[in-house]
Nucleic acid binder design. Structure first.
Length: 236
DNA sequence: CGTTTTTGACCAGCGC
DNA sequence: GCGCTGGTCAAAAACG
């Protein structure tokens, strides 16, 4: 399967977050070195690795390589600087995962150029803002969220956790409904939603919100011989 | 019979 | 305020 990446936030509404990419051979994917192809977005050179994409949205992207350690340390710095909570969300592919801070989104990885040869965002993907709202002068507490995109015939990917569906909604301008799931573990309020990308129904968008208060509870007897595609080394 | 899914109702936020 | 949109509830149905 080819590495697919649209490089944009297509299909995401403003209330959604993140970008994502997944493929069959994610382990072999190494992002191209950054700083070599920034003609669409000429960046100010700074010492810091984390920079806002623009002033209004306070989003950030990483400018150097995407090792987990690097991402973690960089984002931790940013979080402390902004006196903010931060979820270091990261997925195996290292190519495009987003986390969310109070000031907006943090890109945790870059992306390869788009599959159709277009050269929109060679080394990283664009981002739209999710502004944290204030309610009665207080910042609304929002669980860390992130999402990713997978080419799959199956809607609900096996991520090692047990989910119960609690809703389904038809969203405008899309053919496929969006499904809402909640983690079945007691006291765990993690939610997840699944939908197909309107522009490319082969792609599944999986969004997570919150942190599990427990470890994955995948029943091995079922998953071993199961037919569901699994997301290995997936953590958040 | 306990658990999960379905599905319309309900509700909250937002733009006008 | 009003209507639109999307997220959640919950009762009933389906499931195993």
């Amino acid at each position: 399967m080819e590495m697919l990446n649209q490089g944009l936030m297509e299909g995401l509404s403003s209330s959604q977050i993140g970008f994502y990419l997944n493929s069959t051979n994610l382990n072999n994917y190494s992002p191209p070195p950054l700083g070599t192809n920034h003609h669409h977005h000429q960046q100010q050179q700074q010492s810091d690795d984390l920079k806002p994409l623009n002033h209004n949205h306070s989003n950030y992207y990483l400018q150097s390589s995407f090792t987990l350690d690097h991402v973690t340390s960089t984002l931790t710095k940013a979080a402390s600087r902004e006196d903010d909570y931060l979820s270091v969300n990261y997925n195996l592919c290292r190519s495009a995962a987003w986390g969310e801070g109070t000031k907006g989104l943090f890109q945790l990885g870059g992306s390869k150029r788009s599959c159709n040869g277009e050269d929109d965002y060679p080394n990283y993907v664009g981002v739209s803002a999710v502004k944290m709202k204030k309610i009665k002068g207080r910042r609304k507490v929002r669980e860390p969220r992130f999402c990713f995109k997978t080419m799959s015939d199956v809607d609900v990917l096996d991520d090692g956790y047990k989910w119960r569906k609690y809703g389904q909604k038809v969203v405008k301008n899309t053919l496929h409904p969006r499904s809402y799931y909640r983690c079945t573990q007691d006291n765990c309020r993690v939610k997840k939603r699944v939908e197909r990308l309107a522009e490319d129904p082969r792609m599944v968008i999986t969004s997570y919100e919150g942190r599990h208060v427990h470890s994955p509870s995948n029943d091995l007897d079922e998953s071993q011989g199961g037919t569901q595609p699994q997301l290995n080394n997936f953590f958040w």
